[in-house]
Design a protein around this nucleic acid. Structure first.
Length: 183
DNA sequence: CCCTGATTCGC
DNA sequence: GCGAATCAGG
């Protein structure tokens, strides 16, 4: 076993940087890299000084950085052996590079068809609406065919991830895609 | 109950 | 340096 993959080689670090800057979540990056947890990814990201993503311009006397009350008191004994997933699909001794993610597609700015693209099977009525279902209204509430999104809602919020973005963020960041598309 | 990143600290 | 445990929050 040359490398189980659970080590931060240059390639893996580069990939980590790329994906992180690309906006992928830590768990996605972890899944992409393989043999690492999202915690490992986040930890590495912080060690590399990449935390904060696109955010920067930290004030001189940044209260956020200084006023950091420590509360995390982990358990004295922590066995917790994570289950590794050696899904090696390389038949030969050639290490296949991962990364089929992010096709770098240009978003058509506004795409209201996203809702329409959802099959009827996903839609739910007020009767079928559960706690963990997205309450994003679709259609005319006065009509019998009124439905809700029904997707898995974010905990504590009435909407799913997608609709939460719409609800709580009018429109924002698209600079990353612009940059990549231009390059 | 799903997820996100942030932080701490034993290893 | 590493990352699990934990925190804090959407």
């Amino acid at each position: 076993m040359i490398d189980a993959g659970a080590t931060w080689t240059d390639e893996r670090v580069e990939l980590l940087k790329k994906l992180w800057i690309d906006g992928l979540s830590a768990s996605q990056i972890a899944a992409e890299l393989g043999n690492v947890t999202r915690n490992a990814v986040i930890g590495k990201v912080h060690r590399l000084g990449l935390s904060g993503r696109a955010k920067d311009a930290k004030p001189a006397g940044s209260p956020a950085a200084a006023a950091r009350p420590r509360k995390a008191t982990r358990a004295p004994s922590a066995p917790a052996p994570i289950a590794p997933q050696p899904h090696n699909n390389n038949v030969n001794n050639v290490v296949i590079a991962p990364i089929p993610l992010q096709p770098v597609i240009e978003e058509p700015a506004l795409l209201p068809d996203e809702e329409l693209a959802v099959p009827m099977s996903e839609r739910v009525t007020i009767m079928d609406l559960r706690e963990s279902m997205c309450r994003w209204p679709m259609g005319d509430p006065t009509k019998p065919d009124f439905r809700f999104c029904g997707g898995r809602s974010i905990t504590g919020l009435p909407y799913c991830t997608h609709h939460s973005r719409i609800a709580y963020q009018p429109v924002a960041d698209r600079k990353r895609e612009r940059k990549l598309a231009r390059a």
